[in-house]
Design a protein around this nucleic acid. Structure first.
Lengths: 346, 346
DNA sequence: GTGAACTCCGAAATCGTTTTCGTGCGTAAG
DNA sequence: CTTACGCACGAAAACGATTTCGGAGTTCAC
């Protein structure tokens, strides 16, 4: 292990005072350009970089932001999550902050993860996703007054910063497209009801029905777990109806995958006899049979943006100004089917 | 923000010396059980927990281990990676260590990520995956003498701790199964050649051929990127051969997914006319058409084990003793096809 | 009763920074 | 020539923990 050099040794080497060296390195005032250059050069040559522990102790900051992985039920939609993480890391890479992550095992212990993060590790800020309509994490963080930014808005507490990829427009545009194709009974396979995205998706769905003067039938919307198994069982339930839907809008690509499976079970051709649309542009979508029509989710960009918002917040920005709502775009492949044949109507 | 309490205030509150309180909290000797209890209770009541910055400065340790995400080409097989991360976090959760992650953007800057981690952040240990046959990361870490454990062995440098899910057995057992079904020309779609898993997979493949006294045909193995697109183009290449394979073994489920697509393009039924086997048990495998036969990859457990190995290493363990090789198991679904019909032989 | 051995606790040094507050010096104004 | 002032740098005090070492007080053997 190459041995480390401390700032006092560097100062001694330069014949300068420690304080001067410190100021030079941090580019604070009160030091001439000449010595500043001299210090920087020596630091480079001797491989000096300030020990974070010392700095953190003195400045009373951890230079750390925490991300907590939601409990693994549904795994927070794998690729989605990974992209988000990379975006966050990219955003952080130009700052002195480091990203620490913890995984919550269950919904019950999730809050403990947050507590450990802020009370023990003393992170400077927090990020998380899968916001819920009523979200105890938000309440906790606001109560402790710790800066945070969420992926997805919520109905909880005071205003807070977030990036939201608007499920309302997915719900609205997806079902509107089905309506345009002549469908009159459109199923909705939504994520669990406590999630904010579920609420928004259903709002969009109802708005589209209303615009088309179509009746709302509660039997046609089922909330299910956010994965393939959920899509499978949810679609089975839908297809077992006396008057089953002729098209299905899904709250996630994984759900759509399961739904297509369920459709195939009944002997019908998924995406053809019963069209399907998903959400979040899962990378495997193009390889499904038929390729899955879905809505975009610029997750990497969302991660980067979340960092910007968090930094702005810690910089004194007001939460109301730090809320992004992005509209997902329809990605047409082929599972959305086409014009409904006349015979199939009624 | 609820205000923090430092150890001196706690000591004052108790009428004890700071040193005594510290010893009580860290359960070091030289303090009676009675006062130890008293201190712990007060700490609990007043919500005291030691400031990591102070401790780290004094103990000259960062209590931090770093994980670096491989460059996004192929995204390190999403769900695989997430499970690994959760395993690592679970392993770490009982220790004072925190997990910090950084994402390498490209192969070129990957080493810089490592350097930042050890030279600037001063992590106590490092983890990474996707080991390569010749791996500069390993060289760097061994040179700097920083403790690390890898996911996957390598041909680089001195012995080091790792957990390896043995691709050799996947390669061997997968092709052996095809052989058993009567196939004589078996394609191998492998991950990029510089990866260790690629090398091992091919070793297993050749071993199975040899055992069956089948000739090795270099045309039948193609190395390709570790994703669906790679599988697609690789399989196309294989199928365009004058004497194409009648079955394809794949180095990853994502590759298998692309391969099935390519097979379908030619009008043949993937998994039936041309059987396919993948690796790593991707969660979407059961939802492919037909469901994908694959090899298991207990990634969560691997993550947990990696933590154990790292801690053991930092505790003075010898690297040679800290190497796990796990055998993946065949997960039979249906894409492996069945008995080859006699007519297809030659 | 005395010395030794053993417990338990406290004073102070230390880890590597940043930051405040002087201090000396040179320069410009009067 | 004196005074005032700005500029560049240095001394020292934090930040919050751990650890070493020494010193009371107690117990025990002789």
């Amino acid at each position: 292990m190459k041995q480390r050099i401390s700032i006092v040794e560097l100062a001694k080497h330069l014949g300068l005072a420690v304080s001067t060296v410190s100021k030079a390195i941090n580019d604070r005032g009160d030091v001439s350009d000449a010595t500043k250059r001299r210090v920087l050069e020596a630091a480079e040559k001797l491989g000096f970089s300030p020990d974070p522990a010392g700095r953190r102790l003195r400045t009373q900051t951890s230079e750390t932001i925490g991300f907590v992985l939601s409990p693994p039920q549904s795994h927070f939609a794998h690729p989605f999550f990974l992209d988000l993480l990379m975006g966050i890391d990219q955003g952080l890479s130009e700052t002195p902050f480091q990203l620490i992550i913890v995984a919550a095992r269950t919904l019950e212990t999730e809050l403990d993860s947050f507590r450990r993060l802020v009370e023990r590790q003393r992170v400077d800020g927090v990020m998380f996703g899968r916001t819920r309509r009523d979200d105890p994490r938000i309440r906790y963080l606001q109560e402790r007054n710790v800066p945070f930014v969420a992926l997805g808005r919520s109905e909880t507490g005071k205003p807070f910063p977030f990036v939201d990829i608007d499920r309302t427009v997915a719900g609205r545009n997806g079902t509107a497209r089905f309506v345009g194709f002549g469908h009159r009974r459109i199923g909705l396979l939504s994520t669990p009801g406590y999630l904010m995205i579920s609420r928004l998706l259903q709002e969009g769905y109802r708005a589209a029905l209303k615009a088309a003067k179509l009746p709302f039938d509660a039997d046609l919307v089922v909330e299910t777990s956010n994965d393939e198994a959920g899509g499978l069982s949810g679609a089975r339930q839908l297809l077992a109806l006396g008057n089953p839907p002729t098209a299905i809008m899904c709250g996630h690509d994984l759900i759509a995958t399961g739904a297509m499976q369920a459709i195939a079970e009944t002997g019908r051709r998924p995406g053809v006899d019963i069209p399907v649309i998903g959400c979040d542009n899962h990378p495997l979508g193009p390889y499904l049979n038929p390729p899955l029509t879905t809505f975009s989710a610029p997750t990497l960009e969302a991660g980067r943006r979340m960092v910007e918002l968090l930094l702005a917040l810690m910089d004194g920005g007001s939460p109301e100004q730090l809320q992004d709502i992005w509209s997902p775009e329809l990605i047409l492949r082929s599972s959305h089917g086409g014009q409904l044949v006349a015979a199939a109507e009624v």
